[in-house]
Amino acid sequence: MRGHLNWFTTATRFALIEHSRNRFALVLVALFIPLWTSLAYLAMPDTPAHMRLRATGETLAVRGNELTEISGALNAVTLITGFMMFAATFSGSRFDHRLAMAGYPRTHLVLAKVTALALVSAVVAAYATAVTCLAWTPRQPLLLAAALFCAGLTYGALGVGFGSVLRREVEGMFAIVMTSIIDLALQNPILSSGADNPIISYLPTYGAMQAATAAGFSASPVPAYLGIQLTWFAVAALIALVSFHRSTRSTLLVTAPNPKREPGSGGSSLLSPRRADVSPASATDTTAP
């Protein structure tokens, strides 16, 4: 049990160190979130417009600048978490493969990445919510933070998927940026006349956008829409998991009857004599189909 905890804590600590040394992402968090949300708040008209919120069925009178600010916060959070996870996956996939081949349990590596993603998303969502509250007061700030958090999780998982599949860094950045722009621009009734189209409900941050809008302008709790967003996260995470599994697998199959590899102590001298022969039971095979 202690071994499992050690594997998990070590991998989580190093995953967090890796994210913390992504200076560009930290600059984006510090500057991009307040810049984007402030500009959206200041530049858009503050005249109220009527819109129907699907999540509650209510017709709300929302200020255009406040709604665009929410959309901007979602855009910023999704871009940052997507970028951070993409960068870590893109640069680290061969290292993860080497670790897995050396015997590091892949389950613990995956859990560590998910934990790091959750922590990053929580920090970024809390910061974006705090910045939002400086300009105006959403009716349910905690729900806004939860919506931003779930959207961050989803794009983080998408970033892992893109990082596993795409071969060039610029391809991944473009994929994340375009996905987020299409996703959010189509949902904003101020920017898109098609925001009421049924197809909108299939977009990756539909649940988060509905929940965030409810958080801003309604007193109704909308847990089902956070659930929709978490479903999107689960699907994206499953795709990321399959990609990770494929990119870190070994072709060597351990043959029966001894499926365990022999652990070393690392304490003996490298140059101490070894028994020349070993039991065939400790052999590992790879066989082409």
Binding site: G3, T10, L99, G103, Y104, P263, G264, G266, G267, L270
Partner: peptide, 13 residues
């Protein structure tokens, strides 16, 4: 990281 992967008690090697 690799000490954990290889399940080594120490790093003498």
């Amino acid at each position: 990281f690799f000490q954990r992967a290889y399940r080594l008690a120490e790093l003498r090697c």
